[in-house]
């Protein structure tokens, strides 16, 4: 798990996402939501809010819970 002081970020590959939203259900900081647009498979992919609206000061700690539950390995996690 991430050290508490560090910051992180995630990258969601919208085309790999099948819209199961397990990631959304586990994010402790509610930083994942569901896109209104459809991906090529026809799913509404999950989106990482901070990146989507361009927040520089991330709350995301890179705890990777979202990536751990993601069945489709659609999420990459980065940490400082």
């Amino acid at each position: 798990m991430a050290a508490k002081s560090k910051r992180g970020l995630i990258k969601i590959d919208a085309e790999l996402c099948k819209g199961c939203y397990l990631c959304e259900s586990v994010c402790p900081l509610n930083l994942i939501s569901i896109s209104e647009r459809l991906n090529q498979k026809g799913y509404h992919p999950a989106v990482y809010i901070e990146e989507d609206i361009g927040i520089k000061e991330h709350k995301c700690k890179g705890c990777a819970l979202c990536a751990i539950v993601c069945p489709d390995i659609a999420i990459e996690v980065y940490r400082e």
Binding site: A64, I75, Y78
Partner: peptide
């Protein structure tokens, strides 16, 4: 930032 989670090597 360093990647800490991604696809395993032995998956195609």
């Amino acid at each position: 930032m360093k990647k800490v989670f991604g696809k395993p090597k032995c998956l195609k």
